[in-house]
Amino acid sequence: MKKKRARPASRKAEAPRGVTPAQALWLELMPFYIREAWLLDERRLTEWLELFTDDVLYFMPRRKNVPRRELHRELTPLGDLAILEEDKRYLAMRVARLDTGMAWAEDPPSRTRHLVGNLEVTPLEAGEVTPLEGGEVQARTAFLVYRSHLETDHQILSGYREDVLRRAEGGWKIARRTIVLDANVLLDKNLSVFL
């Protein structure tokens, strides 16, 4: 067991006996998401930023009310006005902003609790993980994020994330994140926390 733990995370871990490769991948990714949640809630954003590849797209489309038969229009496509459509530089800029001491939306900072679950790793075929090009996998998680700010402002942000994860030296990295909120009119005064 010790030997296995010392193995670099960039190499595919061998599944323990009785665990399918898909289950093994799930077991590997769930702690990744738990760790990310703690980094966000503990405001360790510089470390959080390291979880993303340099070519990341961090995307949050708008979500519209459309008839059931037109659900293909519910999410705005890339290229339309989004809530967030950020590359690594913009994400880094947002993190750096918080350190200026004058990012008033987050100074004093929000208290957040990211609960992330319902992990599904895809595509899965007959119990085998089919890695995408370049050793990437798609991972979908649902989240509930509680945000408390200043004295009594509070909000629950609910939604899901669809990530493309890439194996890299030192672990997985997020190469693409699409965040879909379960809201049409956002009820929070601003969206100054990361999801």
Binding site: I83, L84, E85, M93, A105, L186, L191, S192
Partner: peptide, 20 residues
């Protein structure tokens, strides 16, 4: 578009600092 949505809107770097 990208510059505007990064600065304005609920998550806009500029606009989020106005609200409080």
């Amino acid at each position: 578009r990208i510059g505007s949505q990064a600065n304005n809107g609920a998550a806009g770097m500029f606009e989020q600092d106005d609200v409080d």
